[in-house]
Amino acid sequence: MKSMTLEDVRRVLEAEVIVGKDLLHRRVKMGCGSDLMSDVLAFIKPASLLLTGLTNQQTVRTAEMQDIVAICFVRGKKPTDETVKLAQLKNIPLLATRFRMFEACGRLYTEGLPGDYEATESG
């Protein structure tokens, strides 16, 4: 199963690193794109990268609860100050890409990052 570092994610998505510039060596095993935290809470696996268009603090809370490696905001959305503060406190890297959700997921997938369905199916 292929995994990527956050540095790879940053490169592929031409993303800005908002929190966690020193944490880019962390590895993500799979990707998950969702704007519904309820779904993320129900489905996402640990060691995932969360791609979302939501930027409120609850994205970080969700990441914290689910042991998500990092959050990447799509569509050029920037997190609120409170979200940034909470992410710093919880040591959760935040990235931001100008790509839309579709493009961001597509690029990561073609670079070899699986989704949680395949990653789980193949064990």
Binding site: L36, M37, D39, L41, A42, T52, L54, N56, Q58, T59
Partner: peptide, 15 residues
């Protein structure tokens, strides 16, 4: 719009 209230919460708790 904040990403909650999709009617999944109680199911997820049960899970």
């Amino acid at each position: 719009e904040l990403g909650f209230g999709a009617g999944m919460g109680l199911n997820n708790i049960q899970k």
